[in-house]
Design a protein around this nucleic acid. Structure first.
Lengths: 253, 253
DNA sequence: GCGGCACCTTGATTCGGATCAATTCCCGCC
DNA sequence: GGCGGGAATTGATCCGAATCAAGGTGCCGC
């Protein structure tokens, strides 16, 4: 796509949260890595994979990667930056569905309806690998590893809803949210104890089905208890084990 | 329906909620129908489809179709009866993830972890088509329609979580729950205004993240408002439009 | 530097639903 | 037919988080 300079006027994109140097390393941490590798290694499909992947972006904070109702043609792997997905009901109330970090994939929930059922909005400067879905599924039919990878990604995302499930206290939810982010950063090779919250308190609250004030209070309490250090959106987890304990009912294992 | 002999010792399975006569018609209403038809029609794959499908059951109320941690080998289409899926945390608290009606498919969330992440429990006498997943994905690689169908089923289930999303009132949740059941029954050819709730109030409450007492109160209120007629678990929707209006924030469209 | 604005924090009050408690109902069982 | 137990209903009370309200802070454009 698109929009080298989407709504702004900065001449060159800054290097946001990801983009840890060389491309090869990034691809190693991407959700598609095994599919790409399986398809790419010394095979004629390599050429095809190349042509079904397209680098898009940058998108700047607040810009849409896709909008509710857009026809579904591709899925997107986050290469750098952070994205939220959200639905807006007809009364205009926003519902945040999820946050996506570098290496994660958005758009899978659009396969069935064939139109995007939600918006995807960049929270900071973000860019993507765009995978044409028709091309991708054609490739999947020929390369079992690609097919399996798609199945696994879809299935994995099914398991994600559990962070919201259950009637849990605000403390449990926030602790679980922080630990979930930590483990996802860790899985992509970032620090699991120090990171930047790209989303506002309001977005966190909305995602966790709490009020923004409640999130703020819980974070203050966690700080007083020396569980975290937080200044604005810069977060340092001082006692991950303690947080894990608080959020354990919502966390895997 | 149902459970003429729910927890008894009947020698032969009764005809529960589904099984509306002949098999062909049932398959027409099943979530797999298009995949089966695509695979089956005059093709050599027919034989293979036959061998990857296996009819299992009956399971009686309370019996497990699979348990958390079981190795994942197959997915199951409900042929008759009703199923709930649930997770039980280490403190022993149950979390109901969903209810599955005839024609719907369970087990998709086990592909990625390769073990079932939840239990599936029959709520009344239930039976299934069991699809070996390795065989299914091998078939999918050869028959594009089957692959596409799997993608679509997985993606569709991703959209389902929205019933629980958002901070909605008990009235909204219960109304949306009833309308969701109604539309799913309608999609499979059953009545959309009269049906049996196979699950207890406690299960409904757990699924909707409410207390059982709250569900009971809301249903009583809906009855007083002439929105529904309910006696035990027999439900008659008197004013679907009214219910849809109450639950609209959670419902599609 | 200054004003405007969005975001965040903290306190006071309110409210929806959870919890506790008491019957009642329904069914299988003796 | 009577008994026992789980499920459902209904009422009384309590509590956690929402809401309302009032600053504080940082950032951007002018």
């Amino acid at each position: 796509m698109s929009s080298k300079y989407p709504a702004g006027r900065l001449p060159e994109p800054p290097s946001p949260i990801a983009d840890d140097g060389d491309e090869t390393h990034f691809c190693g941490t991407c959700a598609f890595s095994s599919a790409c590798i399986a398809a790419g290694y010394d095979k004629p499909e390599l050429a095809e994979l190349q042509c079904l992947v397209e680098h898009v972006g940058p998108f700047r904070a607040g810009e849409h990667i896709f909008r509710t109702g857009d026809p579904f043609r591709a899925i997107f792997a986050v290469r750098g930056g952070t994205v939220k997905t959200r639905m807006v009901d007809k009364e205009g109330r926003e519902q945040v569905l999820g946050f996506y970090l570098p290496g994660e994939v958005i758009g899978l929930n659009a396969i069935y309806p064939e139109h995007f059922p939600c918006d995807a909005v960049a929270l900071d400067t973000a860019f993507f690998c765009r995978f044409s879905f028709p091309a991708m599924s054609a490739l999947a039919a020929r390369v079992p590893a690609v097919q399996q990878h798609l199945f696994r990604m879809l299935s994995k995302e099914l398991g994600t809803a559990s962070l919201l499930a259950g009637d849990h206290s605000a403390d449990e939810r926030v602790a679980a949210f922080l630990m979930d982010l930590a483990s996802r950063y860790a899985a992509r090779g970032f620090s699991a104890t120090r990171f930047h919250l790209s989303m506002s308190r309001g977005d966190i609250a909305n995602y966790l089905r709490l009020a923004a004030e409640t999130v703020s209070r819980v974070l203050s309490r966690f700080r007083n208890q020396k569980l975290i250090q937080i200044e604005g959106r810069e977060l340092h987890l001082l006692d991950p084990a303690g947080l894990r304990k608080i959020g354990q009912a919502l966390l895997p294992d």
